[in-house]
């Protein structure tokens, strides 16, 4: 019997059928959610991307017009570049730095719970407070950041007021606010077995050896998870720039998400906004797929 035939038999066996039934039973709430809360709206978005809907008038079918428009939209090109710069920078910076913070927060020292809460605070304090706080910290003349830089002899840049420093400033902010990534790492660290460290110690590994040969490979699936979801999140980000810079100066912080928001709710062009959303979806898909391709080289699944 060929392997294929064997598989077929297995698939049709009563046991397999029962498992399939259970699979769909467990999945029921999600499939309903998928169809109703995501599927319908997603299909609607695809449909609307083929119209000139202004949100206030009846939509008219314009075929691929919105998509053609995307190819000659210079502002969109700028937004894509900003978004890749911000998304890549923010994801890599926060995925790496929060990993170290999480290791620090996983130490068994007194009061660690309080420290964890403190490091998670920026993720809780959302919205206007954060925006105003950071405009103060980043102010070229009065800001804390340039004050500290000045103390060590560095003339700080204008940050949010300088086109070339605005995205780095946003990246710093997003690292600071990445409390969720810390929590996911902490959760992952609970699964790294003590015995592995013991074995490594007995083999004579120092702290670096234990970190590099035990922690990093054991945590690679979690790092990978944070990379994937970090990219997805930061490529869609827009609320903070909406409050803080509104895309300026010189469109240097015009992120893709902000451009969609503008088209929809400031220019009243929901059709084009929908097409842009489909475009962003495509970009994120592509980046995610590339990450999965490279994942084989570095993501370590122990018992494979």
């Amino acid at each position: 019997m060929s392997a294929r035939a064997a598989k077929k038999v297995k698939r049709n066996s009563p046991l397999a059928k029962a498992e399939s039934r259970r699979f769909y039973l467990f999945l029921t709430p999600w499939i309903v959610g998928l169809v109703v809360f995501s599927g319908g709206p997603v299909l609607a978005t695809f449909g609307l991307s083929l119209t000139d809907w202004s949100l206030l008038t009846t939509p008219h079918w314009i075929g691929l017009g919105n998509y053609q428009r995307m190819f000659s939209d210079e502002v969109l090109l700028k937004a894509i570049w900003n978004t890749l710069y911000f998304g890549g920078g923010a994801t890599l910076a926060s995925v790496s730095s929060t990993f170290l913070i999480a290791i620090l927060l996983n130490q068994k020292v007194r009061g660690i719970g309080i420290f964890r809460a403190i490091f998670y605070l920026p993720a809780i304090v959302a919205g206007v407070g954060t925006a105003l706080l950071w405009t103060n910290i980043l102010h070229p003349d009065f800001g804390l950041l340039n004050f500290v830089l000045g103390k060590i002899g560095i003339q700080g840049p204008g940050w949010l007021t300088a086109p070339s420093w605005a995205i780095p400033a946003l990246i710093i902010m997003s690292v600071w606010g990445a409390g969720n990534t810390i929590v996911i790492y902490l959760a992952g660290l609970q699964g790294v077995s003590v015995t592995l460290y013991e074995a490594a110690t007995i083999d004579g590994a120092g702290w670096w050896g234990r970190f590099w040969h035990v922690t990093v490979p054991m945590m690679s699936p979690v790092i990978f998870f944070n990379m994937i979801t970090g990219f997805i999140g930061s490529l869609q980000a827009y609320t903070l720039v909406l409050i803080m810079t509104d895309g300026g100066p010189s469109n240097s912080t015009l992120l893709y998400g902000l451009y969609i928001y503008r088209q929809a709710f400031q220019y009243f062009d929901m059709g084009y906004a929908s097409a842009l959303a489909v475009g962003l979806f495509g970009i994120i898909m592509l980046i995610t797929a590339v990450q999965f391709l490279f994942a084989r080289r570095w993501v370590h699944y122990e018992s494979k």
Partner: peptide, 10 residues
Amino acid sequence: MIPAEVLLVP
């Protein structure tokens, strides 16, 4: 991966 801001309307 779909931007939530456009899904909001539907």
